[in-house]
C-alpha cells in the first residue's frame, strides 16, 4: 500500500485585510516622501511668485496708518523682507545699514518698502533691539512662524528676500549685508525695471 497525503490548504490572510494593510503602508510611504520633499525644497524659488502673507507690526509701528501690512498691498513696490532676531549677532552687523539705506530711499520717495520680521524672538527683546538700532521701517514678529513657512526657511538669521514690483522673488541674501552699497546693489536693478 502506498501512503497517500492530501494537500493541506494554507489558511490565507483575508484579502480585505491585505488590501487595507497595503493601502496603509502606501499612505505612510507617500506621507514620508512628501515630508522629505518639503523639508529639502523651498516652497518658492527665485523667479516664482511669493504667496501673500500678513505681517502684524510691533506696537508703535504702522504702514500707511495700518498695524498690519500684507504683501499683496505692496504690489508695484520693491519689497525688502529681512528676517532677524535680537539674539542674532550677525543681524546687528547689518541693522544700522538697513535702516540707513531705508531712510535714503524714503527721502526720495522711492518705490521700495523694507519689512523687518523678528524670527523666533521674544517681544520684549525685539522691541529693545529695534530701539537700540533706531529702526523705523515696519517691523513685526513672525506670528506662528507663518511667514517663515511661506519661504520654508529653516536656515537661520539674518536672511533677506528681495521681491520685485510684480511680487516675484528675485534674490535671496543669506547672512548679513556687508555694506550699504551691497544692499543697494540688490535693490536698484529692481527699482529701474
Amino acid at each position: 500500500m502506498t501512503e497517500q497525503t492530501t494537500p493541506v490548504p494554507e489558511r490565507a490572510v483575508p484579502i480585505w485585510v491585505q488590501i487595507i494593510v497595503w493601502i496603509l503602508l502606501s499612505g505612510l510611504l507617500v506621507l514620508v516622501a512628501l515630508g522629505l520633499k518639503n523639508a529639502q525644497n523651498p516652497i518658492i524659488r527665485v523667479g516664482s511668485e511669493v504667496p501673500d502673507f500678513n505681517l502684524t507690526l510691533f506696537e508703535g509701528y504702522t504702514y500707511e496708518g495700518s498695524p498690519v501690512v500684507s504683501l499683496s498691498a505692496l504690489h508695484g513696490k520693491v519689497v525688502v523682507l529681512n528676517f532677524w532676531a535680537s539674539w542674532c549677532k550677525p543681524c546687528e552687523q547689518e541693522a544700522a545699514e538697513l535702516e540707513e539705506v531705508w531712510r535714503s530711499y524714503a527721502e526720495v520717495d522711492a518705490e521700495v518698502v523694507f519689512l523687518g520680521v523678528a524670527w523666533t524672538d521674544t517681544p520684549a527683546n525685539s522691541l529693545e533691539y529695534l530701539q537700540k538700532f533706531e529702526v523705523t521701517y515696519p517691523n513685526g514678529p513672525d506670528l506662528g512662524s507663518r511667514i517663515s513657512a511661506v519661504f520654508n526657511r529653516n536656515l537661520g538669521v539674518p536672511e533677506t528676500y528681495l521681491i520685485d514690483k510684480e511680487g516675484i522673488l528675485r534674490a535671496v541674501k543669506i547672512g548679513p549685508f556687508a555694506s550699504n552699497a551691497e544692499i543697494k546693489s540688490f535693490i536698484n536693478p529692481l527699482l529701474s525695471e
Partner: peptide, 8 residues
Amino acid sequence: FVEYYGAR
C-alpha cells in the same frame, strides 16, 4: 508660544 512661534 504656539500663537507666537507656531505649533512646532
